[in-house]
Computed example of a mutant assay.
Amino acid sequence: MSKKRKDDSDSEDEEIDIKQHKVIFLGDGAVGKTSLILRFVQNRFDPDHKYKQTIGLDFFMKQQQLNKTKQAVLQCWDIGGQTIGQKMIKSYLRGAHAILFVYDITNPSSFKNLKQWKIFVDEVFKASDSQPILALVGNKVDIEYQREVSEEKHNKFAKKHNMNRYFTSALTGQNVAPMMLRVACQLSGVKVTSTQLETDSSAPAVAAIHRFGEPVESSPDVEQLALSSSSSPSSLPSSSSAQSALPYSKGTWKDADLRAAMIDSLKDKKDAKKKKKKNLDQTEKKNEAKSKEDSHIEKTEEQQKSEKCIIL
């Protein structure tokens, strides 16, 4: 998609090229995928935030100015760590332009499990003409003293699978903005400059955030839009400006894979809620049964004591 703006200096129309790119964040739970995306999109990290496992898929967007004539809208797909092995992983991965394999440098198993994530990616793209850009991201370098995955192993894995290599900290923000800028520039065919890397290039960008299944202030009910069979790209709300880059804008919803993934994710979340309620109900029933059993035992003991007293 593209937008034209008028240049005040020469009063000529200058075309701004705006491209959307689907960027997948893969990896085990608790490695910091969501925190990395929030650091990139909002430049924030909540140290008091209690860890909340991503169920299925969460979706974030951010628009970046790459140079005078090019902008990139990064669709950041936050795949839940428990998704590995599920059928829906294929619909999530399909059509990805870049895939970031994220692990926790203090957790060796999160690094080891990347092999399985890579197998899923290979299966999805083995017959595809266009291959996504791959990157290996070692997160939580703010606690380097607890590192259990060496840089040597990191570099060896990245080289073997032809991946770009990054070390980040969602907590401090270290290398997050430069990493995402490199990804955006590589996908857009733009040469990244040292000046851009030294500054926070994402500062003027506009971000639109939506976690599927959760309400969005002043926005249409995206869950209803996703599940409504009558909804079509032409009937969905459109963005009046490319700067809005909303996840439910016409430009984004033309992606059938996104729509399918959203529906799958919403079903995942609902199933998870049902499962949680079922577990709570079962626990409640077990506690109630145990309480009755304890009460029965007490009564039986009292009766036995009473009988002994009578005999005596």
Rank of each mutant, 00 (worst) to 15 (best):
T106E: 13
A177Q: 15
K254T: 03
Y166S: 03
L266Q: 09
I55G: 05
A289R: 06
N139D: 03
V216E: 13
K50R: 13
D122N: 11
L100Q: 01
L57I: 10
H296I: 12
Q304V: 11
D58N: 12
L36F: 00
M262H: 03
W77D: 06
A226P: 00
W77G: 02
A203T: 15
G95I: 00
E198I: 09
E15H: 09
R182M: 12
I16T: 08
M88L: 04
A170L: 12
L57N: 04
L246W: 04
L114T: 07
Q224S: 14
N164D: 15
I119G: 00
G80Y: 02
F59E: 03
P47I: 07
S110P: 06
T193Y: 00
K308H: 07
I99G: 06
K156G: 02
E123I: 01
N287D: 10
S202P: 03
V206W: 02
G80V: 00
L312T: 12
S230R: 09
G138H: 05
K275N: 08
D122S: 13
T252S: 12
K292W: 06
N67E: 03
V23G: 01
S128Q: 11
N279E: 15
R147A: 15
L197P: 08
G173Q: 05
P178V: 05
P178M: 10
F125K: 04
G85R: 04
P215Y: 04
P204D: 09
V216D: 12
A256M: 14
K19M: 14
L280C: 02
S306T: 11
V222L: 11
R259P: 05
E151R: 13
S109L: 14
K299R: 13
D7V: 07
I297R: 13
N155P: 04
M88E: 10
P178D: 06
P47F: 07
E152D: 15
H296T: 08
E288F: 05
K278M: 05
D257T: 13
Q186M: 09
K68W: 01
C76T: 02
